[in-house]
Amino acid sequence: MRLAIVEDDDEVGDALVEVLTDQGFLAERMRRGADLLIGHRRCDAVILDLGLPDGDGLQVLRQLREVSSVPVVILTARDDERTVVRGLRGGADDYLVKPPRIAELVARLETVTRRAAVAAAGPEATVIITGDVRIDLEMRQVEVGGEPVTLTQKEFELVEALAERPGSAVSRELLMDRIWGDAFMAVSRSLDVHISTLRAKLGRPGLITTIRGFGYRWGQ
C-alpha cells in the first residue's frame, strides 16, 4: 500500500516512515500540505498532521476532499473535542492522537483502505457480517451468534445506517435526519434511548462505540 505521511516534524516523520515501512507500507514523507495536494494521486492512504508549516491541516483536508476521496487518518497532538469533530466532519476517515500505538494505527489504516476498496468495487452487499453479528439488509433481519434478534423498524434502520459504514464515524445529525426525517434536538434523546436499547438487544459490548460530541461508530 502506498502511504503518504504528511508531517513536518523530522523526528516524528522519519520514525513513522521507518516503522510503517517495516509493517509493509510504501511510505512517502511529505512535509507540507501543498505536497499532498500536488501528489495525492501517488498514494492509497494518507496520515495527516494538523500543524503544518504552510497552513492548518483541516484546511488542507477540505481542499483535498474537493479533488480526492483517498482515505485520510488524522494523526495529531490536538485532542480537544472540537478539533476531533471538525476533522471527522471535514472528511477524515479516522482520527488518532499522538503518540500512536503502532498496531492500532496499522489496523485503522487497513480499515479505512478496505472500506474505500469496497465502496469503489460497486453496489453494496446485502449481508453485513461483523464478528458473530449477521445483518441481512434485504430481509431486514439481524442474527447474533446464529440466533435471531427482534428489532423495531427504527432500531433496524439505526443498525443499517451504522453497519453499512463499518469502522466509520456517523454523526448524530445524519442518524436523526435519516431515521426521524429531521435533525432537530427534539429527537436527540430518542436517538440515545434507541442506541441504548440496541446495545442491550445485541449484547456485544464495543460493537457500537460512542464518539463524544459527534456520534457513533459500528465495529472497530
Rank of each mutant, 00 (worst) to 15 (best):
A186K: 15
M1T: 13
S168G: 06
E155W: 01
R199M: 04
D44E: 14
V193H: 06
V19E: 08
G145P: 04
E155C: 06
C43L: 00
G203W: 00
G122E: 00
R114T: 13
L202E: 05
A77Y: 01
V142F: 03
T76C: 14
C43N: 05
R82A: 15
R189T: 13
R108W: 05
V118P: 02
D9P: 02
L158G: 03
L202Q: 04
M185C: 10
P148K: 01
V193P: 00
L88H: 08
S190I: 05
A117S: 15
E164T: 15
L198V: 09
T152C: 02
G57M: 04
R134T: 12
D94I: 06
R115Y: 09
L50W: 03
Q23V: 11
V127M: 09
Y95A: 08
V170C: 09
E147T: 13
F25T: 06
I74G: 10
A34R: 09
L37F: 08
D49V: 07
T113F: 01
D93F: 03
P99R: 11
G57Q: 01
G206R: 06
A161W: 01
D9I: 14
R115L: 13
D22I: 10
A121F: 00
H40A: 13
L137G: 04
R115N: 11
R199N: 11
V142G: 06
I179H: 04
R31P: 02
G146W: 00
R41Y: 02
V170N: 04
R78T: 04
G39H: 02
T130P: 02
D80V: 12
L191M: 07
V97H: 07
T150F: 01
K154G: 11
E110L: 09
G206S: 09
A119C: 08
R82G: 09
D94T: 12
R217V: 10
E18P: 05
L48M: 10
T150A: 15
L64M: 11
L52K: 02
S188K: 13
V60L: 04
T130Y: 00
M176P: 01
E104G: 05
D35V: 13
R134I: 11
